[in-house]
Amino acid sequence: MKRITTLFLLILSAPIFSQTNTEEKEKSTAGVSNSIFGVQAGFLGAWAYNELKLTDKIVLKSELGLQTYTLKTKNPDKTFTFLTPEIVLEPRFYYNIQKRADKGKDVSHNSGNFISLRSSYFPDSFTVGEKIADNAFIPELHIVPTWGMKRNLSDHFNYELGAGLGYRKVFETNLKQNNNNDDVAFYLHARIGYKF
């Protein structure tokens, strides 16, 4: 009878041991969050964003915002500063999530260092601010390899820093601007964000 009772207790306790083991494995493997929605503001504009998980370390960040833009025209020789819409798609690889988790550091909401390929499109749909001549702003595409870091300040607030150097493509020529359609794009950002 003792053997049957012991066997019965072992069978009943097996799911408890396997559940504990599974929970330990889940805790030991750190990865990015499934989906994060938020807003960010920096010196040069404001953006709404989403980070969608693709793998344990890769997300696709999409942004829609208003970016400060400075335009220098040749004829007449004048500089305009205004806000223009910006649409961004940016695959990000968070390369040190697991290392931070192993050291006991906060990795929630994708808090870590990343490398990315930032693709920004500036349409000519509208501008906000200083009035510029018709057709003075031309659509542009920037493709910039970027290094950055994201850290949490609290459960909802975070900050992000990043920099990169890449390619700038102007889609049309315009006599009022520089006729060079291809150029170097330098990207630098410092932002404070709020996660919903």
Rank of each mutant, 00 (worst) to 15 (best):
R100P: 07
D183L: 09
N75I: 04
A14P: 11
K169I: 14
K2V: 12
S28I: 07
D124N: 10
L54R: 12
K105M: 05
L52W: 03
D56H: 12
T146P: 00
Y187K: 07
N75C: 03
L71I: 10
F137Y: 11
T55E: 08
F186I: 14
P145E: 05
K74H: 09
N113A: 11
F171A: 08
L141D: 01
I36H: 04
Y69D: 02
N178P: 07
V170N: 00
A185Y: 03
G45P: 04
S120C: 00
V107K: 11
V59K: 04
A48R: 11
R118C: 00
S108K: 13
D124G: 08
F43T: 15
T173S: 13
F43K: 15
T146F: 01
K61S: 01
P123F: 01
V170L: 00
L64P: 05
L12P: 08
A190P: 03
T55W: 09
S35Y: 14
A41N: 10
N96D: 12
L60Y: 01
F37A: 01
S111I: 02
Y69N: 05
F82H: 05
I115K: 10
G104T: 11
G65H: 00
D106K: 05
S13N: 14
G65C: 02
I132F: 05
K57E: 14
I132V: 07
A101L: 06
G129L: 01
F17Q: 11
A14L: 15
L89E: 13
T81S: 11
E140P: 02
A48V: 15
S18D: 10
V39N: 05
L44Y: 09
Q98D: 09
L64K: 01
V184C: 08
D134E: 12
S120I: 00
T146N: 04
F8N: 00
I11N: 07
A101Q: 10
A185I: 01
Y95C: 06
I97E: 10
I58Y: 14
L161Y: 08
G112C: 07
L117D: 07
L188V: 14
N180A: 12
A48T: 02
V144Q: 00
P76S: 07
R168Q: 09
H109K: 15
E172A: 13
G112N: 08
E51G: 04
D155A: 15
H109A: 13
E26C: 04
I58N: 13
G31P: 08
